[in-house]
Design a binder for these strands. Structure first.
Length: 714
RNA sequence: GCGCGGUUAGCUCAGUUGGUAGAGCAACUCUUUUACACAGAGAAGGUCGUAGGUUCAAGUCCUACACCGCGCACCA
């Protein structure tokens, strides 16, 4: 069909994303093509076509999306759109995360501003308030995802704390409990006095701090400490068995000495955990408030005594200091020791790392507490007597799961090797409540509450990552193991989180999936880096330096923002947000727009120029190869260079004034926007709608290369 | 202490299996010629952290070192 000079009136003005994107997203959504079942129904994908699935890393329901999310979502949408165009049954499943501690503390803060206290309004009322907050936040997030152009199947939207996911959690807990993988016990844990909850090792952030480092006389020894306030109960003095300086003291020897509140009897312990080079080579231990001291106390069956309560105040063992906050007491204790002539020296410039809680910022006080744990070392009969650790290690070691960039595999192995039992109970209200009930001396663990009177449920909730670990299959119908989605879309093809949650999340998903369904959760882990602001600072909710992606989109368009997030940012690489880059890709959108205007304005004639078509094919093959190997950052850049600097600057320019190029130019344009669609979906879809004879959406067109991608699930 | 990553144009960063360096922005010259000034043409800008090595050939592989960043462990 011949094209007339009557060009679509939309083309008469520069491309305007603001008046295009929302309209197009609505058309896509109304078409139902985000849903793979509908694609099959309407013949877009064959019922027996290979599948491609990604579950969206669920954004925290604490707030709004920032540019870091856009980076992640642009990447995933690009993969999803590419695979959909390959004709696969393609599912991208959306959801949000209840983010237990983060949300709990956020809502607590909001209440405080209203002059309300969490404990005063009670558990039920508090949870109502959280639900309201989360519903609001979810709305914002969902709107933002649509703005970005994310082709998510909204009919399958999930929440980590909805009914279906809660059933999955209870089912999991019960199974682990019955298998002896979950146990309750007194162990030393990381207590956050500010957040009033236990947290896992992974939720600790170490902060370097300059502290005073004191050396005291302790009988015939000198001991050093940064924390004199823990020393009230210290009655074991530890040294290295090979240390010649202390050779005359023997293991188990009792020594009488004067200490903070009077004379005590100390026992000598000899153990090679001591570093002879550090300090005086002698230390006392506080097993109740130190992981290492606890381990030593367990080894020699030593007494353990609590010194500090859960509010960070000294207990009666401190006598005259009892009831004081530890930081207030510290100086006073030092003064007392000094008065008694026991202070040897103070090093003012001692730098150590202080453990703080990631969410509340509180300084962690190790405590021995009754908590719930997941045993990572116990052999599981159902799983060839492998432990959870081994189940996490194996698929990565065997390359059943590929981690990109691959150097993160080493980091992953290293983490697992040092892994301790996972503390899963939290003393907060918001979250999945532990499905265990007590009655006098009885304990009941079940998916549902026990029958009969007098049972009370455990007050604690679960670590948020416990439910996140189930995400790849709890969203697909599990625990119903015959669920269609589970059969159709699991293991998922790719997971695309930031490297900072490799341990928190990726490892836990592998653990849960391997243990519960005996399957890997995903084939490829494509880790992305961190996006920082122009100064190199992290974008973070707490620092409030987040740029609202919607503002950028309103000014430059989602396509431009997406391209800026993909081009040149390799797997695992951090990037700085660069507005100039966004502008450049906005110009690119307009460039293609104008190319379209020009191509449609000339006569479509002359047949296809073989040389130019061959050249295009070579380029397309190269790009397809990059796409299949997760090199989207290269594919996008090459496409940009071809379209602008080869097609527009050279091919079109050289064709001017010559006859017979119309058909070839049209061919290149039509096929190039297919290649570009996964990256810049809006402008390409809009152009597609202007090109003649196109009934269906570009979104569901076939990728214009045959035979270049035989691998079904790369 | 163990491990990992980075060091490429003024700035921010790419560079797939080794074949004499690329993008965006900024800066320079020219051009408002009917696809596009959200543009075009042209020019400029890098001894690819340092020092060695392998190779016909190294930004790309190997070794050592320096600086920056990160993870893990220790931190009495």
């Amino acid at each position: 069909m011949e094209i007339s000079n009557g060009v679509d009136e939309r083309l008469l003005r520069p491309y305007d994303p603001k008046n295009t994107e929302d309209r197009i997203y609505k058309l896509w959504e109304d078409s139902g093509f985000f849903n793979p079942d509908i694609c099959v129904e309407k013949g877009i994908a064959k019922a027996d076509a290979p599948y491609f699935s990604i579950v969206l890393p669920p954004p925290n329901a604490t707030g709004v999306l920032h540019l870091g999310h856009v980076l992640e979502d642009s990447m995933q949408d690009t993969m999803i759109r590419y695979n959909r165009m390959l004709g696969k049954r393609t599912l991208w499943l959306p959801g949000t995360d209840h983010a237990a501690i983060a949300t709990d503390s956020k809502v607590s803060k909001i209440l405080e501003k209203e002059g309300l206290k969490k404990r005063d309004i009670g558990r039920e009322k508090f949870l109502e308030r959280v639900d309201e907050f989360v519903a609001d936040s979810r709305k914002t997030i969902v709107t933002q995802l649509r703005k970005i152009g994310a082709s998510l199947d909204w009919s399958r939207e999930a929440f980590t704390l909805d009914k279906a996911r809660n059933l999955a959690v209870r089912t999991t807990f019960k199974k682990m409990y019955d298998d002896g993988l979950i146990y309750r016990g007194h162990r030393i844990v990381n207590w956050d006095p500010k957040g009033q909850t236990v947290i896992s090792d992974d939720e600790i952030v170490y902060v370097e701090q300059k502290n005073k480092f004191y050396t005291f006389k302790y009988g015939p020894f000198e001991i050093a400490t940064a924390r004199p306030e823990t020393k009230f109960g210290d009655k074991y003095v530890v040294m290295h068995p090979d240390d010649k300086r202390y050779a005359k003291y023997t293991h188990g020897q009792k020594i009488q000495l004067e200490w903070i509140n009077g004379p005590i009897e100390a026992t000598v312990i000899k153990d090679d955990m001591i570093d002879m080079e550090f300090g005086t080579g002698v230390m006392t231990i506080t097993p109740w408030h130190s992981h290492e001291d606890f381990a030593l106390a367990e080894k020699y069956k030593l007494d353990k005594e609590q010194i500090i309560d859960k509010y960070g105040k000294l207990l009666p063992v401190a006598q005259e200091f009892a009831g004081m906050k530890i930081l207030d007491a510290r100086e006073k204790i030092v003064e007392k020791l000094k008065a008694k002539g026991l202070l040897v020296s103070i090093d003012e410039n001692y730098i150590n790392r202080v453990a703080t809680a990631e969410r509340s910022g509180g300084i962690i006080e190790p405590q021995i507490m009754l908590q719930w744990f997941v045993d990572v070392n116990k052999k599981i009969p159902d799983r060839d007597n492998k432990s959870l650790k081994e189940l996490m290690l194996e698929p990565v070691r065997n390359k059943d799961i590929k981690i990109l960039p691959d150097h993160f595999e080493k980091v992953y192995f290293n983490w697992i090797e040092n892994l301790r039992d996972w503390c899963i109970s939290r003393q907060i209200w918001y979250g999945h409540r532990i499905p265990v009930w007590y009655k006098e001396n009885e304990t009941y663990c079940g998916i549902e509450a026990p029958n009969g009177e007098g049972w009370t449920q455990d007050e604690d909730t679960l670590d948020t990552w416990f439910s996140s670990g189930l995400w790849t299959f709890s969203t697909l119908g599990w625990p119903d193991i015959s669920a269609k989605d589970l059969k159709n879309f699991h293991p998922t093809s790719v997971i695309n989180p930031g490297y900072e949650i490799l341990f928190f999340w990726v490892a836990r998903m592998i653990l849960m999936s391997q243990y519960l369904i005996g399957e890997i959760p995903f084939e490829t882990v494509y880790l992305h880096g961190m996006l920082r602001d122009a100064k190199g600072q992290k974008f973070s909710k707490s620092q409030g330096n987040g740029i609202d992606p919607i503002e950028i989109i309103n000014e430059y368009g989602a396509d431009a923002l997406r391209m800026s997030m993909i081009v040149g940012i390799g797997p695992g690489a951090d990037g700085k947000f660069d507005l100039g880059k966004v502008k450049a890709y906005k110009n690119f959108a307009n460039k293609i727009w104008n190319i379209t205007r020009y191509v449609l304005s000339i006569k479509r004639e002359g047949g296809l120029k073989k040389e130019l078509v061959d050249e295009w094919n070579t380029m397309a093959k190269d790009i397809t190869f990059d796409m299949d190997n997760f090199r989207f950052y290269l594919a996008a850049e090459k496409l940009y260079a071809y379209i602008w600097h080869r097609f527009a600057d050279e091919i079109i320019e050289e064709s001017k004034g010559k006859d017979g190029y119309g058909e070839t130019l049209y061919y290149i344009l039509e096929n190039s926007i297919k290649l570009l669609h996964p990256f810049m979906p809006f402008v390409t879809e809009e152009i597609w709608s202007i090109l003649p004879d196109h009934k269906n959406f570009l979104m569901v067109e076939k990728w214009p290369l045959k035979g270049a991608h035989d691998k079904s699930n790369v």
